[in-house]
Nucleic acid binder design. Structure first.
Lengths: 163, 163
DNA sequence: TTGGCTGAGTCTGTCAAGCGGACTTATCCT
DNA sequence: AGGATAAGTCCGCTTGACAGACTCAGCCAA
């Protein structure tokens, strides 16, 4: 192989963080479920109806998210009704906020609607300003996407098969 | 319906930015492809081999990403070989950096490996420091996930069906 | 000039997953 | 007792993923 092949070709994708994260997040229904939880919709029927998920798929996705620790199942009881369950984000789930905000930010830029964004992230409480994500390096710079590069880290494994 | 139902239930998900973004990004293979492009792997065979994607699926995903404007197909020619094509991120694709960085950041925190992260985002050039994403509001605060809320924006549509 | 190599696909059959719609269960209210 | 409702389970059809074989185009070596 010639020398101009990208450095990344020498590293395994086996343990890649993006892959492992996608094992959890990696399908559209999971993201739909997370969106509902992030906007405060927590009950099975409400999630199903709003997101348009087949019930069976919703059941399966909720179970997966619980198993991975992103959400928990919690009993609730409306006055005069029997106990039921709702789903809530754990800290691990909440910490996906930057991912969701980054996606909304990208979508608002590249798939804009005439009427403006249908969903906005805001700083709760008195501030109430619009929240976005920014890239920042440890030296305090805020690089543009072109100034950022993914590199193999300490946990990178060489690839088994020759390139 | 009782009054404690979340505000979000009154709004449609039809035009939701997350949904529309997930129409493009929303499956694991698409993310695998993007990862390869972000780390600099650009050729069909290289992407296929590293990401372990079935060829047909790769063909289909690349076509989709081109159609959506996230990548472009560009000819290249190695010395003594015929012209072939490689795939490169457009500006729209590059602007997904915050999404990918946010995912890596989450994965490194919640799915850590013994040896440390296999992939790191760094500020290119002389700086070379580690890059992360932060949430920031327009007043300059950097809220924690719990201090952020998604709210209906100007483009929010009321829901067609009653609650 | 023929034959082989390689990158970038296409084709084919199998099998798992998604899907809509009907059905179930448990508890509350009237 | 009868009806309502949230949260599922069950069923059959269809779509998509998948592995593996095949194709095609241009370059190289003999």
């Amino acid at each position: 192989m010639s020398d101009d092949e990208p450095e990344a070709m020498r590293w395994s994708t086996e343990n890649c963080t993006i892959s492992r994260t996608m094992e959890i997040l990696g399908d559209k229904w999971t993201f739909h479920v997370l969106r509902e939880l992030f906007v405060g919709v927590r009950r099975f029927e409400d999630i199903r109806a709003r997101a348009g998920i087949p019930r069976q798929v919703l059941t399966e996705r909720l179970a997966g998210l619980i198993e991975r620790g992103l959400i928990r199942r919690q009993p609730y009881r409306l006055p005069g009704q029997r106990e039921r369950y709702e789903y809530r984000l754990t800290q691990a789930g909440l910490d996906l906020y930057p991912v969701l905000v980054a996606m909304v930010q990208w979508g608002d830029q590249y798939l804009p609607l005439d009427d403006g964004p249908p969903l906005e992230a805001r700083h709760r409480g008195t501030c109430n300003e619009h929240v976005s994500v920014v890239l920042r390096c440890e030296a305090g710079h805020e690089p543009t996407p072109r100034e950022v590069a993914f590199r193999p880290g300490p946990g990178a494994q060489p690839r088994a098969l020759a390139g």
